[in-house]
Design a protein around this nucleic acid. Sequence first.
DNA 1: CAAACCTTGACAAACCGTTGGTAAGGTTCA
DNA 2: TGAACCTTACCAACGGTTTGTCAAGGTTTG
Lengths: 128, 128
Amino acid sequence: MDALTIHEAARTTGWSARMLRYIEQIGLVEPDRSASGYRQYGPGELQRLRTLRELLDEHDLGPADVAFALRLRRDGALRAGVDAWLEAEPSRPETVSAADWLRWEQEKHARLLGAAGAPTSTMETTTR
Amino acid sequence: MDALTIHEAARTTGWSARMLRYIEQIGLVEPDRSASGYRQYGPGELQRLRTLRELLDEHDLGPADVAFALRLRRDGALRAGVDAWLEAEPSRPETVSAADWLRWEQEKHARLLGAAGAPTSTMETTTR
DNA sequence: CAAACCTTGACAAACCGTTGGTAAGGTTCA
DNA sequence: TGAACCTTACCAACGGTTTGTCAAGGTTTG
């Protein structure tokens, strides 16, 4: 056998054993298992754990942030959707389609109608 | 005047006014302001708010996830760090540097010393 | 002017991420 | 065998996210 157990890995990386299980649970560092189910941390996992610590400290992140970045990397549809949304960054009018302008005009119309007639509802739109 | 107020924007996008302020706070949709400080939602912002809703629903995200993706996109050092960490995905021994092997050997040595002379078996060292 | 907007700021509740602990039970080894 | 590991599964506490509501005060407009 050539790998550290979870508590040994914890001691040499600075994480707690509890956190090593958590980090595995969210998919960041997944050690091999022995035949009887013991986690086996090899040099690769240890390096990953140490650099993960540095990464989190350096940029003030949580493990969940890195897990989300991992999800972004693995789920192409997610990445595409997020990228597309972020692409249309500020309120650039060029990014607005003709259909949006149409809806825009309809809304302006609705506003004028609403102001003219019925008492305006002061309730905030709550949608769950 | 050609833009919607916050409550009007809320009504037409399905968000609550409170959430529009929150979404602005985390940097996702930042409307212009009138001279007196009123938020002004134009067609671009309205479209962004609608597609944001779709994005979150479709992939089961929270606003903070998208905010983190935005941070990833804007902060090059952050993106580089996260990417570098994710790059070395599984426990591929090829991704382990010589320095890591050195540290690895040192650790194995320390373990053996702690076990007070167990020859082949390299199991735990109780240090509490 | 006054009603009905808007602003920021604060408090609060519900949930989740993070972390520790503990209990019940299997594994290893001196 | 028994001590000292390991496993999973749960409960708990603290803090951050998400959302609502309210208060004090400025703006717009009929």
